[in-house]
């Protein structure tokens, strides 16, 4: 395999991995944009989504598409209840209190799943059995892309376009944007901010749940602690793109995924995390608001 084809293969792998980061990053960025909370439980919601998808496919024997939608719905309901129980009472107190609450929720979720299914990785049924045969297609210079990668990228893209539509075109989306601009003024304009925040959690978590199932199908295994590192990477991606910005989270995720796979390609795979976070710090130093972030002016 020559250099170009290797480059293209890793680029595709990177985009596939990056789309899952992007799906998780969107939830981080939306929640942060609206209530300025780093929702540390978000990575665990992604993990729960993967497990719900797995349970629906293996235990309840439903079709994978229904399992996919079921996982999204489950994550939605779970995140909304978490928000009501753990974050809403803390909305007027210090931001760190909500952060610690989120960390508590994250510890609870990962340990709960550990207790329920055990610490061993669980395998997803092979894709041939539940959806379709994997085929590979030739691209330029001998590089190949397979149906699984196409599926991952296409489904992520559809979800992101759907999100863009909700945020830009619907009434709820308009209310979301208003609330993220100014919480108090939005409330004064007659927006039910509590409901809008619930919607934000619901949509963000549905995306994370979808990401969980996609990753389960793509890599074939799910584990109780799989949410931690991708969660952190996704948050990094959100910051990289400019936190609070939805296109930023998408591009941040994909850029991070591509960088990671390129690091693996040049033989530094054991340093992949160090390089990903190193780039993050560099971006923060050069452009603290991220690639797509708006400059924030502080009024005195």
């Amino acid at each position: 395999m020559d250099f170009t084809s290797n480059f293209i293969v890793q680029l595709i792998n990177g985009i596939a991995l990056g789309s899952t980061y992007a799906l998780i990053a969107l939830g981080y960025t939306m929640v942060y944009g609206i209530i300025m909370l780093i929702n540390f439980a978000h990575g665990e919601i992604y993990m729960v989504g993967a497990f719900v998808g797995l349970a629906l496919v293996t235990v309840f024997k439903v079709h994978i598409i229904i399992a996919f939608l079921g996982a999204m719905l489950f994550c939605m309901l779970m995140a909304v209840s978490i928000e009501i129980i753990a974050y809403r009472p803390l909305r007027r107190s210090k931001r760190l209190a909500a952060l610690i609450s989120a960390i508590g929720i994250s510890i609870i979720l990962s340990n709960l799943v550990n207790l329920l299914v055990g610490p061993k990785p669980q395998t997803f049924p092979p894709i041939e059995e539940i959806l379709f045969e994997i085929k590979s297609y030739d691209l330029i210079a001998g590089a190949q892309i397979n149906t699984l990668q196409i599926l991952l990228i296409v489904v992520s893209a559809i979800l992101m376009i759907g999100l863009q539509y909700i945020v830009k075109r619907t009434k709820v989306g308009k209310a979301m944007r208003a609330t993220s601009q100014d919480y108090d003024t939005a409330a004064l304009m007659g927006i039910n901010v509590n409901r809008i925040i619930s919607y934000t959690f619901a949509i963000g978590s549905a995306l994370a749940g979808a990401g969980g199932v996609l990753v389960g199908i793509y890599f074939g295994v799910v584990k109780y602690n799989m949410g931690m590192l991708p969660g952190m990477k996704a948050f990094t991606a959100a910051v990289l793109g400019g936190i609070g910005s939805i296109p930023g989270a998408m591009f941040g995720g994909i850029i991070l995924g591509v960088i990671e796979m390129m690091t693996v390609a040049i033989g530094l795979s054991s340093y992949r995390d160090a390089i990903a976070f190193g780039i993050l710090i560099l971006v923060l130093l050069i452009k603290p608001t991220g690639l797509f972030g708006k400059q924030i002016f502080k009024k005195v």
Partner: peptide, 9 residues
Amino acid sequence: GALLVIMMR
């Protein structure tokens, strides 16, 4: 984890 959430609440 539960203790963290309850304490903060």
